[in-house]
């Protein structure tokens, strides 16, 4: 006891400095995540908290909407990672060197990153307005393509939901790639030039290998950010039509706050947490290499 007291007095200053943060982090981050596991194995509808074991996890295995939401989220992740990385890299290649208008283009491409997700989701939802007068439908009309239902079309909705997510990540990826491309060895490029390499060969054999680290970084960050996607899906479709755009996160929300089955919502959330955690560990391991 005496020893603890002495250690405390010895480090009183830093401990007082971190104390507020410890309280806040514990209350709103650490405790919730620990509580989540507890909730998932107890029945908490009426706040009694009877132990129910792994009933919720069994329910989850037989929950078709859960599997559909996992599939939908995975499709979204793959599309966002693929197109977000390619367009981000392309934009970065075009915008690394100084030229007239470079700054303006960078700002235009980056602006979606700083806008508010939910507000931008509202804007896209209105652009997808399903009547003939909707903006995208009137664009299609120019090419004589019939009007689409977009977010209301079971076949199209998931892809329509994904486009704004790609749109919003391009600028972010671009900035990371620009930082990486600045570090590419100029001499090596010039040597290749002398030896008659064309731009494609330079891109494949010199530039991409030299920016491998940034590419991996962008891929992993995009996967991590997209698996937990909630706000755009909630605002634009709320999982409709027929759960075709349900993501893991919207399903957690609906189970917990629409059907008020918080225990089941918690079990779903544990799954989302585990997905993110496995991916993060994978990332850390990769990063340390």
């Amino acid at each position: 006891m005496e020893k603890i007291k002495n250690t405390f007095l010895e480090h009183k200053t830093p401990l007082m400095f971190v104390l507020p943060a410890v309280i806040f982090f514990t209350l709103f981050k650490i405790f919730p995540i620990l509580n989540l596991f507890w909730l998932s194995i107890h029945q908490v509808d009426k706040d009694i908290g009877d132990f129910i074991g792994f009933k919720n996890y069994l329910k989850l295995i037989h929950d078709q909407v859960f599997w559909l939401s996992l599939k939908n989220t995975t499709i979204i992740v793959i599309l966002v990672v693929f197109f977000g990385t390619i367009f981000g890299y392309l934009a970065a290649l075009l915008l690394t060197e100084d030229f007239k208008g470079q700054k303006l283009f960078r700002i235009l491409i980056f602006i979606p990153v700083v806008t508010t997700v939910s507000i931008i989701a509202v804007v896209w939802k209105m652009m997808y307005y399903p009547a003939n007068s909707g903006m995208l439908n009137s664009l299609l009309a120019y090419f004589n393509i019939p009007a689409q239902q977009w977010l209301a079309d079971p076949k199209l909705a998931l892809y329509a939901l994904t486009v704004p997510l790609i749109w919003r990540i391009i600028g972010y990826n671009m900035m990371i790639f620009i930082a990486a491309l600045k570090g590419v060895d100029k001499n090596q490029l010039e040597a290749a030039q002398v030896e008659g390499a064309n731009w494609w060969q330079k891109l494949i054999y010199i530039i991409i290998p030299a920016t491998k680290y940034a590419i991996n970084m962008v891929l992993i960050l995009a996967v991590l950010r997209t698996y937990k996607v909630f706000v755009p899906a909630y605002v634009m479709t709320s999982g409709d039509p027929q759960h075709k755009t349900e993501t893991i996160a919207t399903w957690i929300y609906k189970q917990s706050f629409r059907y008020w089955d918080m225990s089941y919502g918690a079990a779903l959330a544990v799954v989302l947490f585990l997905i993110i955690m496995v991916l993060t560990i994978f990332q850390k391991k990769f990063q340390s290499e």
Binding site: V18, F28, K29, I33, F230, I252, G265, A269
Partner: peptide
Amino acid sequence: FLITIFIGTMMLPDAALMVPLFRI
């Protein structure tokens, strides 16, 4: 330990914490 935990909380998905956070 503290700095690891603090920075580690960045990975926690908001959507996963909805239920416990609401109850707190």
